[in-house]
Every structure is written in C-alpha cells, then in structure tokens.
Amino acid sequence: MIDALSPVRLALIVVFGLCGLFFTFVSMAGVLRLPDVYSRAHTASQADTLGAGFTLAAVALAAGWDGAGFKTVLLLFFIFVTNPTAAHAIARAAFEEGIVPWTEGDERR
C-alpha cells in the first residue's frame, strides 16, 4: 500500500511520524525529569496533543481521505477533548489534597 503513495505524501507521512515520536519522547523525558505532579501533568498533555496529533496525522495521510482517515480525525478530536479534562482532574485532585506546587529551591518530590 505504501508503494502506491506519491513520494511527497510518503515524505510527509515519515516527517509527521517522526514529529509524533519526538514529542512523545519529550513528554516521556518531562515526566521523568520534572519535579512534581503539577509540572508532570503539563508535559503528559504534550504526548497527547502533538505526539498523538502528529502520529494520527501520519495515519490519516497513509489511510487517505476515505473512512479511515475521517475516523482518525474524529479520534484526534476526542483526544483533544478528553486530554485536558483528565489533566485538570489530576491537578484538581492534587490541589484538593493540599499538595502545594513545587517551586524553585524546594526539594524534588
């Protein structure tokens, strides 16, 4: 199936796929490096927005504008609705529990 694609489209698919990988990697590095639950929630949303976003864009390009491509766009839409809701739920739960966000000079948690 990939053989039938034009070189430009193939290149775009590869570029988008790599971008998706890159942002997922950044997000992983952030979750490991950042100091507390709030700052980790920031970077976890990166994997969902651009990481999944670019990957799904690559999928949509590979699948073409028929059913599958349309479905990946829908998928992206739902990720964009649910991801901030989940991040907010985590942050709010942490806040309600009285966890004070990390600031410079604090010990790493």
């Binding site: 709030y38 700052s39 929630a41 920031h42 949303s45 927005t49 901030p84 806040f95």
Partner: peptide
C-alpha cells in the same frame, strides 16, 4: 477556556472558583 489553557503546554488549569481560574 479552561480546557484550551490546559491543552497548551506550560499552563494547566488546577481549579475554577467562581470566575477565578487557578492556573499552574
């Protein structure tokens, strides 16, 4: 608005109290 703020990396809505948004 709160979801847009959270979607943008670097800002995270923690709490909405009346018209106040607490944003990390």
């Amino acid at each position: 608005l709160a979801n847009s703020i959270t979607l943008t990396p670097g800002t995270l809505t923690v709490r909405a109290r009346d018209g106040d948004l607490y944003v990390h």
